[in-house]
């Protein structure tokens, strides 16, 4: 029971936090906390098989699925907590609290009697016991479950499938289109610039610099730009670099030492710069 009294407040807190955190990733993390705690409670309640399944299936598979979808949906899914339906939040709170109070008060009226426990049932091992029941009494439900899973898989495939409406473009067609786009709107013919090129960092969040020192916007992912995770301090870096180059010959530091120096300064400043006022100012939810 100690485990219960330790875990219960954590679970309730984590669950409540799901209601208030802004980012879906955080909500997923909090849900994982609740689920793992639940798994422990299953262990307390003499259900070791469900403990394992809870960890593997729920926390391992289902939560992964959530995270994958979050990744696909991306930053656009970032949730605003401003309520749009009038009265929805208050009514939801009132209704939810009323339900919760009713359930708790209702349960308080019931005395369940002494706990029988699963000691005798689990004598030959919990998994064997479950298998005995599952493959005898519940075998039909078990088989139907397989049909359900296949149907779900088929459904997911159908939903995710996109019918190709036009024939696949050949490389020749693509090339012709790109040249045509270049002729019409002057679109860049070649591949997009890679991030970090001509820059002091090769992280994906560091935009490439054009020969004149300006930022090549195309070189970083739009999602990163929308999330505000792009390094925006390039011009200042360039100035600093210029100064370092200017000072370099003056201080008599050999060129071979310049490189570790510069890296050390940049690593020293990069965190400061990334948390500085210039970053994170881009609006979220570009859509």
């Amino acid at each position: 029971m100690i485990a219960f009294w330790v875990l219960a407040p954590i679970m309730v807190l984590a669950a409540l936090s799901i209601l208030f955190v802004r980012k879906a990733v955080h909500a997923a993390m909090l849900l994982a906390v609740v689920m793992i705690s639940l798994a422990v409670l299953y262990l307390v309640l003499e259900a070791p098989f469900l403990f394992a399944v809870q960890i593997i299936v729920y926390t391992g598979a289902i939560m992964m699925l959530f995270l994958f979808v979050l990744m696909l949906v991306g930053v656009d899914a970032s949730d605003s907590v401003i309520e749009t339906i009038r009265g929805q939040r208050i009514l939801a709170m009132v209704g939810g609290l009323a339900l919760g109070l009713t359930l708790v008060l209702g349960l308080a009226q019931i005395s369940l009697g002494s706990v029988v426990g699963l000691g005798s049932v689990n004598e030959g091992g919990n998994i064997q016991a479950i298998a005995n029941v599952l493959f005898s009494k519940y075998v039909f439900a078990f088989e139907v479950t397989s049909a359900l899973l296949i149907t779900a898989a088929m459904g997911a495939m159908v939903l995710a499938h996109r019918e190709r409406l036009t024939p696949r473009k050949t490389q020749a067609v693509r090339a012709a289109e790109r040249v045509a786009a270049y002729a019409e709107s002057g679109e860049h013919l070649g591949p997009l610039p890679a991030p970090g090129v001509y820059a002091r960092h090769n992280a994906v969040g560091t935009p490439a610099l054009l020969p004149d020192g300006s930022v090549a916007e195309d070189s970083v992912s739009r999602v990163l730009a929308a999330r505000g995770s792009v390094r925006r301090t390039i011009p200042r870096d360039v100035d600093e670099l210029q100064r370092a180059i200017d000072h370099g010959p003056g201080s008599g530091v050999p060129a071979s030492q310049d490189s570790p120096d510069g890296r050390s300064t940049s690593t020293g400043r990069a965190p400061g710069a990334s948390t500085g006022p210039d970053t994170g100012s881009t609006p979220e939810g570009g859509e």
């Binding site: 679970m11 309730v12 899914a77 609290l97 919760g100 349960l107």
Partner: peptide, 21 residues
């Protein structure tokens, strides 16, 4: 505890707007 978690989940369904949440 189960009731409380259930209620919190219900309120979350009603108040959160992100479909994934």
């Amino acid at each position: 505890l189960s009731s409380i978690l259930f209620t919190i989940g219900a309120i979350g369904v009603l108040t959160r707007r992100n479909a994934i949440v």
